[in-house]
Nucleic acid binder design. Structure first.
Length: 208
DNA sequence: CTTATGATTAGA
DNA sequence: CTAATCATAAGA
């Protein structure tokens, strides 16, 4: 019985409960994560949806990755075992949701950049008591994903196996395209690598 | 302690 | 294009 099956009457699918699924290079996981489901069984209710955009951040050699500056209190979770959440705060206002990958304790992670929410309420909207319209169901941009799912740094390090936040099964879209990552211009030769993956034809998945 | 800057976003 | 806005890490 999967973790999700305990939530009766929802469309939440079976959870990914195998840690080895995460125990791989982020480049692999990032591509397979497109089409999978992100689920947060929060105190304010279930929020779930389909991941439509991700970015891979490799180990210390990837100058765009936080782990390239060595282990610090902020990025320590990246250096731990795979299958955990890495949540960090940037630009003085945004939380970003990442999945720690492997192999082993290699400090790699995948940033979740956009999700189409198909179950539960966008928590950022719930708190503002504004009903979400159909077109508003897309949480585009990592800051918006975190807000919509009610994920902040208190969940940094949370286990994706058996925790309130987990990944659900889902079919991979027929067409996934690769693009350069966003906001990593400083990363030299690593800046141009097509390590951002998004659903094709969903061009307004992210702003840029 | 001070300082620079960022895996961003909204708005002009 | 720029302002907003502050945690983080490095340096003094």
């Amino acid at each position: 019985m999967s973790a999700a099956a305990t939530t009766a009457g929802t469309r939440v699918g079976p959870a990914i409960v195998d840690r080895s699924w995460f125990d791989r290079p982020s480049l692999e996981v990032a591509q397979e994560l497109v089409g999978k489901r992100l689920v947060h069984a929060s105190a304010e209710g279930i929020v779930a949806g389909r991941i439509v955009e991700t970015e891979a951040y490799a180990g210390p050699e990837d100058r765009a990755a936080h782990s390239s500056r060595g282990k610090t209190p902020r990025n320590a979770v990246m250096f731990g075992p795979p299958g955990h959440l890495y949540v960090y705060f940037v630009y003085g206002m945004h939380n970003c949701v990442n999945v720690v990958c492997g192999p082993g304790n290699k400090p790699e992670a995948v940033l979740i950049r956009a999700v189409t929410i198909d179950e539960g309420e966008d928590l950022a909207r719930t708190r503002r008591r504004v009903s979400a319209s159909v077109t508003d169901r897309l949480a585009a941009g990592p800051g918006n994903v975190a807000a919509a799912f009610g994920i902040d740094r208190s969940l940094n390090g949370a286990d994706l196996l058996g925790g309130p936040v987990y990944l659900g099964d889902g079919s991979r879209p027929p067409r996934v395209v690769a693009r350069p990552r966003i906001g990593v211009a400083y990363a030299g030769e690593w800046a141009g690598l097509p390590w951002r993956f998004l659903v094709a034809d969903d061009s307004h998945v992210s702003r840029r």
